[in-house]
Each structure stands twice: as structure tokens, then as C-alpha cells.
Write a protein that binds this DNA or RNA. Structure first.
Length: 430
RNA sequence: GGAGAGGUGGCUGAACGGAAAAGCACAGGCCUCGAAAACCUGAACCCUCUUUAGGGUCUGUGGGUUCGAAUCCCACCCUCUCCGCCA
């Protein structure tokens, strides 16, 4: 949510921001309502002042009593008129996305995102690399057929070494982020509507989230959505910022707008596990913290030695709560292109304002809204894809990235004998 | 699911139909060579374009009763304790 005073004072900046984000909001209407609201508010407040004065002592005089009763009705009448105005005003206010930071490049959609750097050399093979799904199915690591049987499309079973790899990856996250002051958290995955709304994912993302009607709870699409609200209505001491967490949880997405997109395999599924970084920080530090998050993401993927590129999102591809956003895209050899594995956003005070998350400033001693930053550590499905693709061997086996070997009892998945066909590993057979 | 207790500022906590005590922490002032202590003032949100100044709102949320509600009534949310069920 934006500050109404800011909108009042800088309507053109807000309009410009909405335009850049390709979001249509009637700011003129909002300001009109705001003006009307203040008019009514002033009237009702002066009546109320009168009433307070009158009622500051017991009223026995019949004349005064009559007057007081009149005031009561007048106030009630004005408040009745105020109600729909405020309702509409709030509705519009909640539709306004966070404004992009000044240094975010302008662009309509993902086509205008900017590649800011590439890391590593694209993996070379002396054979034609296969796609991850074929390899994984041969090794019995991913089972989408049975998942379809029991749950429908866009689900998958991770099995055997793939299941073990998930925990190895999480261990790598622990070892990388805990020294940086991140507090590990395993959060609930169900969340109250007002909290979900506070994070800015309802207005323009309602179709994307699962809702459990019977219990009035949403399923989180990422643990960001629940770590933010964890500190709702709280005040941080200035010295405690930045407060860094990383959450590990299952994530649930309806993928309602993605018909026909990435339908194969586990690249885009309704449920996956993810380790997510989250930080509450000082407004002046948020740009720095955002870059720090990007640095952590790069560190994590570099440790896996997977080639990637960093993409800066243009204004049109930011999403509602973000003011700036970077993605990391890993090299996927079989597709000969980069695909998104990580994303980090600076949401400035947009979420904090909605959720009333403040801090006491060390210098001014005033209460101010904190800034929130989020970023992927590892999204399991996608990073598994990147590992399998980049570490595949001619014989259909998959090597384990060196950094993960210390968490596992194997260095390779497979190998397969080309004559005998696929040999699923026996060691972990259930 | 059943029974009981409770939700008040940054924190602790009183008032239980008539201006939201008090303490702690914090800030400014005063004092001082400087500080501490004591004392005074302030402290959330909104409005009056800004200041001065004034007004309004805020006792979990939303309604109701009343001239007046933290206080009484209704609904809902949440927390704690006990019982039941349970991985």
C-alpha cells in the first residue's frame, strides 16, 4: 500500500509508476474520494468535538440533552455517508501496486527485461544432451505419471536420490546462510486472508492461490508470504535490523494463467518445496540488502557450478509488491536457453505498511515502516532440473555437484549400462 | 469438539458507565565544567495546505445500547489453562 499523503502530494509520480507497471488505477477518482472523505470527516469531527464538550459532564438539563441527542444523530448520519466513500477509497488504494524504483528500466513485459551479466561457461557435452525428464525417469527420480494418477497434472513424485538431493540442497542453504545471520524457519503453510492480503498477493493474484474455504485459510505460494506477516503489528528496535530469515516450506500455486505453458515435467507444478530468504531492513539499507540477496543467490548457484545469467526485471514485469526485482536464470542445455530458478525483490515499505511492521529509528527515535526484501535460496524442483541437465553424463547417469557430495553417500546417480538398459540405483530402493 | 480465563501504548500494567492511571525503556528541556540523580515536557494514528495552535481517533475486530463505552449487550478473531480426540 502507498501512503495516501504521498499520493496526495505526488499524484503524477503515482500515475507514472502505475503506467510503468502496466496497471490501470483511477488516481483521479482516488483523490476525489480522498477530498470528499476529508470534507465529511471535518464536519463530523467538529460535531464530535461539540458532543465531547457537552458530554464531558453528566447531562441532566433537558435542553442540553435534546441538543446532545441531535448531535448524535448528525454524527451518525455523516458516518453513514462516509462509509461507502472510505470503502471505495480503500478499495482503490489497495489496487495500487508498489511503485518501481527510479533506476528500474522501463519496459512493457518480460521481453524487455535486461540481462545484466552472465556467469560461467555454458556446459559443454561431447554428446547431445538429453532433457532432464527423460534422464530422471530413466533413473526413477521423478514420477509424473503416478502423480497425475493420484493428484492430477502439474504434480510430481521426487524419488530416491532426487529426494535425498532435496535435503542435501537444504543443507547447503543452511551452511551458506546461517553464517550470514539468517535465522532458519519452518513456517506454517496456511495463512489468514488478511495476512495474505497484506503481502500484496490477493488484489492481482487471487486466481493464483489456493483457498481452503471451510477454514478461511490460504495456502502459501512461497514462505515469503508467511514470514512477512510473522512480524505484523510489531516494532523492531533499530539495532535489530536487518532481521534476516530463511524459510523452508512447501509452496502451492494454482498456475491458473499458465495453461499450456511448461506442461511437461516438474518445471511448473502446483506444489514444490523452496528455501526462501526474507529480510526486514532499514529503508536506507534496502537497496543494499537487495543486492546482498542477489549476491547470496549467486553464491548458492555458483557453489553448484551451474552457469547462469542475472536478469533485471523491467517495470512491467515486477509484480504488485515489488519496487525492483532480479531473476537468476540457470542454463538448461537441452533447451539451449536460460530458465528462471531464483528471484529476489525489494518490496520497500509496501508490505510493511499494509501489515504495520515498523522499527524505531536509531537516530530520530521515531517509528517508521520497515522495508522488506525476499529472495529464493533454492526452489527444489527447478534447481534439480538444472543439476540433472548440467551434470548429465553420456551413459545417462548424473554426477553430483561436488559441494553436495559431503551431504550424500554417493557422487553419481546411475551409472547405466548401455547394453542392459536402465539400471535404477539399488542402494535406496524401497 | 467441550469448559474456564484473558486480549489496554515500545514493554509491564491499573481503571470495569463520566477526561486511558502508574512504572520501565526512550527523546527534549532544566541542572552541570561535563555527567548522573531529581524535576518538567513529550511520546501511536488522522484532519485543519505548512508552522503556531486546535480538534478528532486509538483499550483484539465489527455492530448495538447511552448525552457519554476500555467498562454494558451481540457476533466474530486470537491467546492461555483444563478435558476429549490425535501424528
Amino acid at each position: 500500500m502507498l501512503d495516501i499523503t504521498f499520493i496526495r502530494n505526488h499524484p503524477n509520480k503515482v500515475k507514472e509508476g502505475c503506467r510503468k507497471k502496466q496497471v490501470k488505477v483511477d488516481i483521479g477518482k482516488l483523490l476525489e474520494l480522498d477530498k470528499k472523505k476529508r470534507e465529511y470527516l471535518n464536519k463530523s469531527e467538529s460535531f464530535r468535538a461539540e458532543q465531547n464538550k457537552l458530554s464531558s459532564q453528566p447531562v441532566t438539563d433537558t435542553q442540553k440533552l435534546k441538543k446532545a441527542k441531535e448531535l448524535k444523530l448528525k454524527i451518525k448520519d455523516l458516518e453513514k455517508k462516509l462509509e461507502p466513500i472510505e470503502k471505495e477509497l480503500n478499495f482503490i488504494l489497495y489496487q495500487i501496486p508498489n511503485l518501481p524504483l527510479d533506476d528500474v528500466p522501463f519496459g512493457k513485459d518480460e521481453k524487455e527485461n535486461i540481462v545484466i551479466r552472465e556467469w560461467g561457461e555454458k556446459t559443454k557435452f561431447d554428446f547431445k544432451p538429453k532433457d532432464y525428464l527423460g534422464i530422471a525417469q530413466n533413473l526413477d527420480l521423478i514420477d509424473v505419471k503416478r502423480a497425475a494418477k493420484v493428484s492430477g497434472t502439474r504434480f510430481g513424485f521426487l524419488k530416491r536420490e532426487a529426494a535425498l538431493l532435496e535435503f542435501a540442497l537444504i543443507n547447503l542453504v543452511f551452511d551458506t546462510l546461517i553464517p550470514e545471520g539468517f535465522i532458519p524457519v519452518i513456517p506454517p503453510v496456511m495463512i489468514k486472508p488478511e495476512m495474505m492480503r497484506g503481502m500484496g498477493y490477493i488484489e492481482r493474484g487471487r486466481e493464483e492461490v489456493y483457498f481452503i474455504e471451510k477454514d478461511n485459510l490460504y495456502l502459501v505460494g512461497t514462505s515469503e508470504q508467511i514470514i512477512g506477516p510473522m512480524h505484523a503489528n510489531e516494532v523492531f528496535e533499530g539495532k535489530d535490523l536487518p532481521k534476516r530469515y530463511f524459510g523452508f516450506s512447501s509452496c502451492f500455486r494454482r498456475e491458473a494463467g499458465a495453461y499450456g505453458k511448461d506442461t511437461k515435467g516438474i518445471f511448473r507444478v502446483h506444489q514444490f518445496d523452496k528455501a526462501e530468504m526474507f529480510s526486514f531492513c532499514h529503508p536506507e539499507e534496502s537497496k543494499k540488502e537487495h543486492l546482498f540477496f542477489l549476491e547470496m543467490e549467486e553464491k548458492l548457484i555458483q557453489r553448484l557450478s551451474i552457469p547462469y545469467r542475472v536478469v533485471q526485471m523491467c517495470t512491467g514485469d515486477l509484480g504488485t509488491p515489488a519496487a525492483a526485482k532480479y531473476d537468476i536464470e540457470a542454463w538448461i542445455p537441452s533447451e539451449e536457453r536460460f530458465r528462471e530458478t531464483h528471484s529476489t525483490s525489494n518490496c520497500t515499505d509496501f508490505q510493511a505498511r499494509r501489515l504495520n511492521i515498523r522499527y524505531r529509528d536509531l537516530k530520530t527515535k521515531k517509528l517508521e515502516f520497515a522495508h522488506t526484501i525476499n529472495g529464493t535460496a533454492f526452489a527444489i524442483g527447478r534447481i534439480l532440473i538444472a543439476i540433472i541437465e548440467n551434470y548429465q553424463q553420456r551413459d545417462g547417469s548424473v554426477k553430483i555437484p561436488k559441494v553436495l557430495q559431503r551431504y550424500l553417500k554417493f557422487k553419481q546417480i546411475g551409472p547405466l549400462s548401455p547394453k542392459k538398459g536402465v539400471q535404477p540405483p539399488k542402494k535406496y530402493k524401497v
